[in-house]
């Protein structure tokens, strides 16, 4: 059958998307709304992870501060809603523009550093955001802020109801995946990937790599703020806890579990992370310990993450056939 993807990884990813597409109806049918919640949360995080993978996996910029952009997106819903501004376009516009501006300023400074320094400085900036929200008494400080109603969009784009919100999430996730794929194969992406492996050479070829990386960082931040905007709508409650540096670390783990610098790895990595977290915590209260050991093992032995294993299967099959 020619229409089937030829590789094992291609088939797995197609299957994942085919399972995700009708999920709300399936869960409604088997009467398990909890699973839809779980999946919605996973896919929101997946958008953030896809955005992080763009700079981390393809661009070699390891940011330990991406949760800040989830926060900016979430508070772009929360704070206007607090003043009874529920217009969804306003929320969307604020999330995208504030995250772009913040990424421009902090990226311009962070990208002057490399390696561990870049990790530390992105984390420092994100902690600044964390403590800013923590200190805003008006917006709940560490108690958080309740969002009483979802962002308002035209009827056909409404977010009301868990099914419509799910398709918002799923739609934006698909767009993010498509966008990253196009971007990486376009001229811009070639510069980004080339700079990851050999920045000096890229400069000698005439590329002002700093500018390209900064724009890439801003694009990633804006995508991540979309995840935050969805998260604010999904939980109906936002607090600084959602955006601490530990969350940024989790995002990095999700990228690595799935496979950094791959197109679908971040999606399956995030789903795997969220499901593992959920089900391990059902089995035992000491689940953090088991989870930690699994993560360490994965980093040590699981080169290339889930995507890496799948392509290993492909290579084995090609070798035998």
């Amino acid at each position: 059958m020619n229409w089937l993807p030829q590789t094992i990884s291609g088939r797995v990813y197609t299957a994942v998307l085919l399972i995700l597409a009708p999920a709300p109806f399936v869960f409604e049918w088997i009467n398990q709304p909890f699973y839809l919640d779980l999946l919605s949360r996973a896919l929101i995080l997946a958008i953030a992870v896809v955005s992080l993978n763009l700079i981390l996996g393809f661009g070699g910029m390891v940011s330990l501060g991406h949760a800040a952009y989830i926060g900016i997106g979430a508070y772009s819903v929360g704070i206007p809603s607090y003043y009874d501004y529920y217009n969804g376009w306003l929320h969307l516009g604020l999330a995208l523009s504030i995250s772009a501006a913040f990424a421009f300023v902090t990226g311009a400074i962070s990208l002057r550093t490399k390696g561990v320094y870049f990790i530390m400085i992105t984390m420092a900036f994100s902690q600044m955001v964390y403590f800013t929200f923590l200190s805003l008494e008006e917006y709940g400080a560490d108690d958080g802020l309740v969002i009483y109603s979802r962002s308002e969009f035209p009827e056909w784009l409404s977010m009301d109801g868990s099914t419509s919100l799910y398709y918002w999430i799923f739609g934006l996730l698909l767009l993010s995946l498509l966008f990253v794929r196009r971007l990486v194969h376009a001229r811009f992406g070639r510069v980004i990937v080339g700079s990851k492996f050999n920045e000096q050479r890229m400069q000698a070829l005439g590329f002002n790599t700093y500018r390209y990386r900064l724009v890439c960082y801003m694009i990633s931040a804006m995508m991540c703020s979309l995840a935050g905007m969805l998260l604010g709508n999904f939980t109906g409650f936002i607090s600084p806890d959602m955006i601490g540096w530990a969350r940024s670390g989790e995002l990095i783990f999700m990228v690595i579990i799935g496979g950094a610098g791959t197109f679908f790895g971040p999606l399956v990595g995030t789903i795997a992370f969220v499901l593992l977290e959920e089900f391990l915590s059902l089995i035992t209260v000491y689940w953090h310990l088991i989870f930690g050991v699994m993560l360490v093992a994965l980093v040590l032995f699981g080169k290339g993450g889930i995507d890496g294993w799948l392509s290993l299967l492909d290579r084995k099959r090609a070798g035998n056939g």
């Binding site: 196009r182 971007l183 194969h185 376009a186 001229r187 811009f188 992406g189 070639r190 510069v191 890229m202 070829l205 005439g206 590329f207 390209y212 724009v215």
Partner: peptide
């Protein structure tokens, strides 16, 4: 690519 205009092109595949 480096010497043929800017590379802020995000959509068309290079290949």
């Amino acid at each position: 690519q480096g010497t043929s205009g800017h590379s802020f092109r995000f959509w068309a595949p290079v290949r």
